[in-house]
Each structure stands twice: as structure tokens, then as C-alpha cells.
Simulated scan of single mutants.
Amino acid sequence: MTTALPALYDQLRQDGFAFATADTMRDLLDAATLPDWATFTASWDTLAPDAYLASVGRHRRRRHAVFAADAQGVRREPDQPHYQSKTYNTLQGDIERWFEPIVADGPSLRRILGFCHGFFGGLAPQVDRWRVEVHQFRIEARADEAGEPTPEGVHRDGVDYVLVLLVDRTNIESGTTTIHAPDGRLLGSFTLVHPLDAALVDDARVFHGVTAVTPKNPSLPAHRDVLVVTFRADATGG
């Protein structure tokens, strides 16, 4: 852990993004000690369809929650909509989107949020309070229809920092994360393959996207499960 953190900090400061292997994240989260890990990962099986995305002919499942993070720690806020302007989401911007709330709010999620608070807070120590949004996503692929992890294309989320943590890949091919400069130049690419592989992104500096996923065996169910955590400085927190 002592060597992994400085390397991740250096890479994020230098490049605007970092890929963390599952082994690295397992150590940083001390994942072997989490009592609810199996329940946490199984909660992706209960995700509700994203009705907003279905309205434009695409399909995925998700849940959502909002937290606040400050010197007193990380605490859950009342359920509220997810909102992005069209500046950041040309597909579904400028609307309030209500999703089913996250129910797996136990030690695993709390430890992930605690890691993010410490890591991202170390990059911006001047921030007293963060608005944190948590998204569970399941992208399903079918024989006749690829799954789109980022249907809006290469984009920014309109926040300060992003963690994308792979939870599961079942019968899936592709799903390559690409990182781009504001002028569109490709800065790097990698594929989250193993549970706990992660991408850490400085959203103010770089754009990101994920290529479509297809089933390895078209006759079997195929999905890609990720947890996305975003941190944005909350000016209303004083």
C-alpha cells in the first residue's frame, strides 16, 4: 500500500488518469476483511432498468445514491435526482433523472467511499466538503445488440474526480476504456478485466469513454458490472 498510493498520485497528477490493478485495489481497500463483499456484488442482480436510456433505444440497469464527505467523514444524503447539463451529457442532459436508490450501503461501499475521500482529498486538500454520487451500472449485451457502457460517447462527467471500479464481467468481450485530451487526442487505453480493476480520472483535465461490449457466447447472458463514484467540490458546504 505504501508504494501503490504515491505511484497512483504521481500518475494522476502527471497524466490526468491512472489504471489501478485489482491487486492494488484489493490492498488499498483491504478487501479480504470486508464482511459483506458477496452481498455487495450480488446487489447488481437487483438493479432496475434505466428507463431514461430505454427511451432513446438503449438499455442498461442502475441504482444511484448521493453522499456528502467532509472532515466528519462520509454520510448519505436524502435521495435526489442525478443531473447533468447538456455540456457534459448531450444524450440526456438538462433533465433530472430519478433512479432506484442503492440498497447495498454496507461496509464494502463505505470502505470504497472512504478510500475515494482520502485519495481525492489528497489531490485537493483545499476542499472542505465534497458532493459524492454513487452509481451502480449493469451493461447487458445480447447476440443482436451490443451493450454501451458510455452511450453518450467520449465525455466528461462535470465533476472533479471519478473512480470506475469493475465488479464483474460475465461472458463479455471488449469494454475498453479510452482517455482523451480535450482536443480529442487519445492519451491512453486499458480494459477493466478483473473484479476490482479500477480507473481513476481527473475529470477536469481529460475525457473518457468505454467501447461497446459484446457477448463471447451469444447464446448465454452477458453483462459488465461497474461501480462509479464521482467527487465534486461542494461550495454550499462552506
Rank of each mutant, 00 (worst) to 15 (best):
Q11S: 14
Q14L: 08
D15F: 02
F19C: 06
D23I: 01
T24C: 10
D36W: 01
D36Q: 08
A42L: 04
S43Y: 07
W44S: 05
D45W: 00
P49R: 10
A51M: 11
L53N: 13
H59A: 11
R60P: 07
H64A: 05
A65M: 13
V66F: 01
A69I: 10
A69N: 13
V74P: 10
R76L: 10
E77S: 06
H82Q: 10
Y83R: 11
S85V: 07
T90K: 15
R97S: 02
W98V: 10
D105W: 07
R110G: 08
I112F: 01
L113Y: 03
G114F: 09
F120A: 00
G122L: 07
G122V: 10
P125E: 06
R129V: 03
W130K: 03
W130Y: 14
V132M: 04
I139M: 14
E140Q: 15
R142A: 14
A143M: 13
A143S: 15
D144Y: 01
P149C: 12
P151G: 05
P151W: 02
G153S: 12
H155D: 03
H155K: 04
R156P: 00
G158H: 00
Y161S: 10
V162K: 00
V164D: 11
D168N: 15
S174M: 04
T177N: 15
T178Q: 09
A181D: 15
G184Y: 00
S189I: 01
S189A: 15
H194P: 00
H194I: 12
P195Y: 11
D203V: 03
D203K: 00
F207D: 03
A212M: 05
P215W: 01
K216S: 13
K216V: 13
H223L: 00
H223N: 04
V229R: 09
A233K: 14
A233R: 15
D234C: 04
G237N: 13
G238W: 11
G238D: 12
